[in-house]
Design a protein around this nucleic acid. Structure first.
Lengths: 150, 150
DNA sequence: TCAATTTTAATTGCACACAATCAAACATTG
DNA sequence: CAATGTTTGATTGTGTGCAATTAAAATTGA
């Protein structure tokens, strides 16, 4: 009975190792870093890669729609998209029917990246070393949490 | 049979919804945002909260040790720690026995925050709405992935 | 119709995050 | 003990992230 029985300062809930937030935060950053060597050869950052994943599925998206898919706001997307525009991967133009909206359109150079990046998911899967069942279980749990938080 | 039978561009592995990276990235950002209202009342950011979690367990840590615990490098920690020093939550001083190292020491104001923040983990647990078993399962899977990636 | 409200992207300001580089100081080795 | 190499924190530069604000344009409602 050497354990504390009082509600003392050694709060188990305040220990780093007992947090759920920390491993998520750390895994997210390490995973981004794990992509870096593959994306660097394509002159892509990780958030830019996510934008392309979205545009490869939908060639035209407004900034708002892109933000809804990636859960990012325009304050993040606007400068990022301007950099991608400079590299001729996409174009930014106002919607003539709604001058408030900016339409993002995939350009040929951006489409060309799709072929060059097609091995990236497999390479990362290898690096993570998760069995298919583990992968799917984790993805579903994160999906649940994502719904809960958004 | 209108579906493509060629190995065409609609690569299933390149769809946003089939990625593991995206939900981790998104959950991490949403979780940080979920902490914000609670931490804001304490004038804390989420990474600063993580630094305090570490210091509440170990009152003295070098920047290097802190980086090892949080998996952050000095380029991130140095400016963050300087801001926390200005608020008198911690002190930064050279190790007299090794002038290269900077020792971070928790100050009384930083210790006082521990009591004020003690409800934060419970509040977040509520917000996430995970059953204890789900929580633990997710934590273990992330721990595995963390080990694999670091 | 026309004033008030809402929607939208841009802008601004602050805080990470990290690669690359640097400089100082410690450690090692001959 | 001196030359060399390594460790360490700081610095610099780029790229996110996001809250708050702004400005323009569309929508709504009397």
């Amino acid at each position: 009975m050497s354990e504390q029985t009082s509600f003392s300062a050694d709060n188990e809930w305040q220990k780093l190792e007992n947090q759920l937030c920390f491993p998520i935060y750390a895994v997210s950053r390490l995973l981004t870093k794990a992509y870096q060597p593959y994306l660097q050869t394509l002159d892509l950052t990780y958030p830019q890669y996510l934008v392309l994943l979205a545009l490869w599925e939908h060639e035209n998206l407004t900034v708002k729609e892109l933000g809804e898919k990636l859960l990012l706001d325009s304050g993040t997307l606007t400068p990022l998209l301007k950099r991608m525009e400079q590299k001729q991967w996409l174009s930014r133009r106002r919607d003539p029917r709604d001058e408030r909206s900016v339409i993002i359109t995939l350009l040929p150079a951006g489409r060309a990246l799709q072929q060059q990046a097609c091995q990236v998911p497999h390479q990362l899967l290898d690096k993570m070393g998760l069995a298919p069942a583990e992968f799917e279980a984790l993805r579903l749990q994160l999906q649940t949490l994502l719904t809960r938080l958004s």
